[in-house]
Design a protein around this nucleic acid. Structure first.
Length: 677
DNA sequence: CAGCCTCGAGTTCT
DNA sequence: CTCGAGGCTG
């Protein structure tokens, strides 16, 4: 095959592929690939056609904005075409300056001429619509469709409460067409899915699909129950309206007419565009709705018409997208990890993929039923997401791309580390290794848990060192840690005299601790930090706790049958009592029977969120507890205060929703200082 | 018994 | 941070 024939074949392949995705996306409302993948195919086709103009045909998907109307909705021919905005691949500062450079060149501006004024706004991830107001009354709403012809969705759009049915003016223009985006806020999306789950209905993959699906509902009564939102960002046809001179002026005027306009926008020079881009990038996850990126537009409408269009794209606007939050990659292997409690966790090893600003190679698959539900297999192409949360997630698989012969994943019956039987209790979703401390994986995790900051706080005893200590057989049990010497440590790799001495010093320092820390460090099932504190307060001494009956344990606040049984079983094992005795013999000590401090926060529950200016999280917690307060992990109606730092997350929103009083660090210190200087 | 509130446990990458 | 499960409350 000649090179030209090969290119022609690829072009045909891309067109067929894009057409198939368009059909699924626009007509069926069931996307088959993430947007980023679609964009990639589209750009590859654009590039090939640019290099080989002879291959370009009028019916290529690059010649029209894709899609066609659904059956059931009347077609609407747009009086002014709804165009798409060019997506810039270079979204850096240089990309913004290149846009400015192109604009200035087209306008024939010299270096000495004043800067061009731009407007920057968000690129929403929703569904573009055209609203037609005649004499101030909403008479028609249409989707973009292929840009020339869309679908009449007036009935559904009328149900969106953000969209005025009548403009708020005494002198409405005969015709005013408003363009904007119908979208779903993230919290509305969550509650919509929540409700669908409760009914046992199918849930939506993301807010965009939910918005698109809702607008395409043939039954407006159903659409009315979908909590859709809307932002205006432009104009279509106008008659008899004094159109402002600038884009930003248009948006301000629309706001006055009662249309919602997003306030996240700015007007200024190219430098302001760059600042806006960075500012939004930093706050992207905290926005209440999904965005693709930002849009830069020449602000003056006169300059816009002077600049005109290249094919179908305006020369006066450009979109800068942020790194995609969903991408395709392949599952190279599914491995099984063993946790501290023996829980077997399957983890997908992925071909490295850049999602949401980082390269992802691993994603947890949680448990067997999760894998079964998503039907993830080795070799599968999967959609990986890294949403507001940091943790990558396998959203689903692409069944069309499954290699032949890919077998369903089966949870192993034996522990992959120690070979002990793996048991899945009836009604449980998790499988567990039954090997207990025979299992090297569980021993390592137990040691790491013991050494962690909130437990015995042994600085320098991390994953790598524990790995070596256990594999070399130097440490088998917790007390072994306190019998380490320089000689033993010298056997390890990457352990020079200096770091060995540091580690020994850290281990030595950990001997002086507190009863709650020690209890937590033991790693009793169901006993975390909070329960350890409750137990220590209730029993006062370790001996009293170790000898407590199940009935006695049930008297402790927050302890029920499951937790009581777990603690009792733990201390009934001779082996565990032996470990405790040896640890004490190794010099671990604490002052027993500390009385709970009374202070200004006695009986108060406080929640911390975000980063405080001077205090660390732990320091703030210690301070609050020393004043008699309790630090909880989540906000509820019973929370007395929420201490808010910078980059506060969902807890702040929840506190505001519940009307819980907010404090900043200074406010907290003032509250404490009022009684305890 | 249902629903709310909390806590425990597991997880990724820089 | 989120999920799931344990404990508490109405």
């Amino acid at each position: 095959m000649t090179a030209v024939a090969a290119v022609a074949a690829r072009v045909a392949e891309l067109r067929a592929s894009i057409a198939a995705h368009d059909h699924a996306y626009y007509v069926l409302d069931a996307p088959t690939v993430p947007d980023a993948e679609y964009d990639r195919l589209f750009r590859e086709l654009q590039a090939l056609e640019a290099e080989h103009p002879d291959l370009a045909t009028p019916d290529s998907p690059t010649r029209r904005v894709s899609g066609r109307p659904l059956e059931g909705f009347a077609p609407v021919t747009h009086r002014v075409a709804m165009l798409s905005i060019r997506t810039e691949t270079d979204t850096t500062e240089a990309g913004a300056r290149a846009f400015d450079g192109r604009v200035r060149r087209e306008l024939g501006l010299a270096d000495g001429d004043p800067p061009v004024v731009y407007a920057a706004e968000l690129k929403f991830d929703g569904l573009a619509v055209n609203l037609r107001y005649e004499d101030g009354v909403l008479v028609q709403a249409a989707t973009r469709g292929d840009g020339e012809t869309g679908e009449d969705v007036t009935q559904n759009v009328r149900t969106i409460r953000a969209i005025p049915l009548r403009l708020t003016t005494d002198a409405p223009p005969p015709v005013l067409e408003v363009r904007g985006e119908v979208y779903l806020r993230r919290d509305d999306f969550e509650s919509l899915n929540e409700a669908a789950r409760n009914r046992g209905d199918k849930t939506f993959v993301n807010p965009r699909n939910a918005a698109a699906g809702s607008i395409r509902q043939l039954d407006p009564a159903i659409a009315a129950q979908r909590p859709l939102s809307f932002f205006a960002y432009g104009l279509g046809e106008t008659q008899g309206w004094a159109v402002p001179a600038t884009h930003s002026g248009v948006l301000d005027a629309l706001l006055v007419l009662g249309l919602p306009v997003c306030h996240e926008r700015t007007v200024g020079t190219v430098d302001d565009l760059i600042r806006f881009h960075a500012d939004i990038a930093a706050r992207r996850d905290a926005l209440p709705f999904d965005i693709d990126g930002v849009v830069y537009k020449v602000d003056s409408l006169a300059l816009q018409s002077q600049l005109g269009f290249v094919t179908r794209e305006p020369r006066w606007a450009v979109a800068h997208k942020y790194p995609p939050q969903e991408m395709l990659t392949t599952v190279e292997a599914i491995e099984v990890q063993v946790g501290r409690t023996g829980k077997l966790t399957p983890v997908a090893r992925l071909a490295p993929v850049f999602v949401g600003g980082v390269t992802v190679t691993n994603a947890t698959l949680h448990n067997a039923s999760e894998i079964e539900r998503k039907d993830v297999r080795v070799g599968d192409t999967v959609i990986v997401r890294r949403a507001g949360d940091v943790i990558p997630e396998v959203v689903g698989v692409m069944p069309d791309r499954r290699p032949p012969g890919a077998a369903p994943f089966a949870m192993p019956c034996a522990c992959p580390v120690c070979g002990s039987l793996a048991v899945r209790e009836e009604g449980e979703v998790d499988s567990r290794c039954s090997g207990g401390l025979i299992c090297a994986a569980q021993r390592k995790q137990a040691l790491l848990h013991f050494a962690q900051r909130r437990a015995m706080d042994i600085d320098g005893l991390g994953e790598k060192i524990v790995e070596q200590l256990v594999d070399a057989g130097i440490v088998r049990t917790l007390p072994d840690l306190y019998r380490l010497g320089l000689l033993k440590l010298a056997e390890l790799e990457r352990m020079a005299e200096k770091s060995a001495a540091n580690l020994l010093a850290a281990i030595d320092a950990s001997r002086q601790t507190t009863l709650p820390r020690f209890l937590f460090a033991l790693g009793i099932r169901h006993v975390g930090e909070a329960t350890a504190k409750d137990l220590a307060r209730h029993f006062g001494t370790l001996d009293a706790l170790m000898d407590a009956s199940v009935e006695a344990l049930l008297q402790v606040e927050q302890v029920g049958p499951v937790v009581a049984e777990s603690i009792h079983t733990f201390f009934a094992q001779p082996h565990q009592r032996e470990v405790v005795e040896q640890l004490r013999a190794c010099g671990i000590r604490w002052s027993e029977g500390e009385a709970a401090a009374k202070g200004p926060l006695a009986g108060k529950t406080v929640v911390l969120t975000g980063t405080l200016p001077t205090l660390t999280r732990d320091a703030a917690q210690a301070l609050i507890e020393s004043c008699g307060g309790r630090v909880a992990g989540s906000v509820s109606a019973k929370t007395h205060f929420v201490v808010v730092g910078s980059e506060a997350g969902s807890k702040l929103a929840r506190a505001q929703a519940l009307g819980v009083p907010l404090l900043d660090e200074a406010g907290l210190l003032e509250l404490l200082g009022a009684v305890v200087p």
